[in-house]
Amino acid sequence: MKFDTAYSLSLDEKLSIYDVRDLNFDETTAFDSDKDSFLCPNDECRATFDTGNALSTFNAKNVNYLRTPHFKNKTSTRHIDGCRYASTHKTTTGENDDEREENFPSEWLLTRRQYERKNPVVGTEGNVPLDPTKAPSSRISTPLPASDTAPDKTSVFAHPVECYVSNIDDKDKLKSMPLKIGDHTATYWTFFKKIEYLQDNKGLIYWGKIKAIKDYTSSFRIDFEKKVWLDRKPYSVNVYLSKKLIENYRKRKAFLEQIKAAADSERPLYCFFYGVTPELQQVPSKKNPDQTFGVFSANIENLDHLIIREAPGVEGL
Rank of each mutant, 00 (worst) to 15 (best):
M1H: 07
M1F: 04
A6G: 04
S8D: 01
L9T: 03
D12M: 00
E13L: 03
L15R: 00
R21W: 07
R21Q: 08
L23N: 07
D26L: 04
A30Q: 11
A30R: 10
K35Q: 06
N42Y: 08
D50G: 06
D50H: 08
T51N: 14
G52V: 01
T57M: 06
F58P: 00
A60Q: 00
A60V: 00
T68V: 15
H70M: 09
K74Y: 12
K74W: 09
R78H: 13
H79A: 15
I80S: 13
Y85W: 11
H89M: 09
T91H: 05
T92W: 09
T92I: 13
T93D: 14
D98T: 12
E99C: 08
E101L: 14
E102I: 11
E102S: 12
E102W: 10
S106T: 13
L109C: 11
R113I: 09
Q114M: 11
Q114F: 06
Y115G: 03
E116H: 13
E116Y: 10
N119L: 04
V121H: 09
V121S: 11
E125Q: 08
G126Y: 03
V128R: 07
P129L: 00
L130W: 04
P136G: 03
P136H: 01
A146F: 02
A150H: 01
T154L: 05
A158N: 07
A158Y: 04
P160V: 01
E162W: 01
C163H: 00
Y164G: 06
Y164R: 00
S166E: 00
S166R: 01
D169S: 14
M177E: 15
M177Q: 12
P178S: 00
P178E: 04
L179V: 07
G182K: 00
Y188I: 05
W189F: 11
T190G: 01
F192R: 02
K194A: 09
I195M: 11
Y197D: 11
L198A: 02
N201D: 12
G203S: 06
G203Q: 03
W207S: 05
K209S: 08
K209A: 10
I210D: 06
A212V: 06
K214F: 04
K214Q: 14
Y216D: 10
S219N: 12
S219D: 10
R221K: 13
D223M: 09
F224L: 05
E225S: 10
E225Q: 12
K226V: 03
D231E: 11
Y235D: 05
N238Y: 02
Y240V: 10
Y240L: 05
S242M: 01
S242T: 07
K243L: 03
L245M: 06
Y249N: 07
Y249F: 15
A254R: 02
Q258K: 13
D264N: 13
D264F: 04
E266W: 09
E266H: 13
R267F: 11
F273V: 06
Y274Q: 09
V276H: 07
P278G: 11
P284W: 08
P284H: 12
K287P: 12
D290N: 15
T292I: 12
F293A: 10
G294P: 07
G294K: 00
V295P: 04
S297N: 15
S297F: 08
E301I: 15
N302Y: 10
L303R: 00
E310A: 15
P312H: 05
G313K: 14
L317E: 12
